[in-house]
Design a protein around this nucleic acid. Structure first.
Lengths: 140, 140
DNA sequence: CTACATCCTCTAGCGACTAGAGGTGCAAGA
DNA sequence: TCTTGCACCTCTAGTCGCTAGAGGATGTAG
């Protein structure tokens, strides 16, 4: 059984070293055993768990949601209804976020296109910002 | 000259009362004059400035970017190149964010569609999270 | 006059890290 | 053997943009 240092765990999972320690501190990752010189010694399972967390974080899941997902993963005999619900909720969030970003994109485009590259007092960027009534998409 | 209280300023600008105070504290808004009983008394120009800030925040501009935009607004004889650059940078950010959210949406859809509503050990949600290699869009 | 809303200041908290100080341990080259 | 330099340790504080709450003063309506 070779010892996996925190640096190695970080490299293999793609989670940064301080973040690994942070996850341990908030109880997302069980405290690993320590070497004689007090250094953390991880198991392969920890790497998987870290990769799981990283992937979920990349997908924008919050730590609390991940905590739930991990509990589910730890007990595979449970119904996956919770996992499904969490993913669905996240999907709805993402869809909403995309919609609002699209409106935002349109507005920014109007601003940038309208910019005559002259002085600020003719600048559409500043103007649009100053007056929300001019928005092409006022619903934000 | 009627005195505008912080509550009124908040109502008219759409910025919350504690946030108005916060903006003052970080120097985004000049400290207004005070009444005899030490209450803030705002000018109509402050309301416009707050509305400007609110709109810019809604468009996702960071406080620092807004600070620059406000300086530009304060001096309309400057070239609007900076404002243009800030807006363009923000547009690029937004476009990137949309692209990555679309990839994310696709991945979440795969997860949710694949869920057989059975037990966790057959759950695609958990499975996909555990193994990034299964992503349809691995580039995140 | 009595409620009750609004104002004031100040401090602390949120999420999810990140940075830095100050120290120990370890392996490899001169 | 020494020393260089990296990786590790703990702890605290900072990031961003607010938000919440304590504890108190003031303003307004009935």
């Amino acid at each position: 059984m070779k010892k996996i240092t925190i640096g190695e765990a970080a490299r293999q999972s793609g989670v940064k070293v301080p973040t690994v320690r942070y996850y341990e501190s908030i109880g997302l990752l069980a405290a690993p055993s320590r070497s004689e010189s007090n250094q953390r010694s991880f198991e392969p399972a920890d790497i998987s768990r870290l990769a799981f967390i990283r992937h979920a974080r990349e997908l924008g899941f919050e730590i609390d949601a991940i905590r739930t997902l991990l509990t589910l993963q730890d007990d595979p005999h449970q119904s996956c209804a919770s996992a499904d619900a969490i993913a669905k909720a996240r999907l709805i969030e993402v869809e909403q976020r995309i919609r609002s970003l699209m409106a935002l994109k349109a507005e920014l485009e109007t601003m940038v296109e309208g910019c005559g590259h002259g002085r600020v007092d003719q600048c559409r960027v500043i103007e649009v910002l100053a007056d929300h009534g001019q928005c092409t998409h006022p619903h934000h």
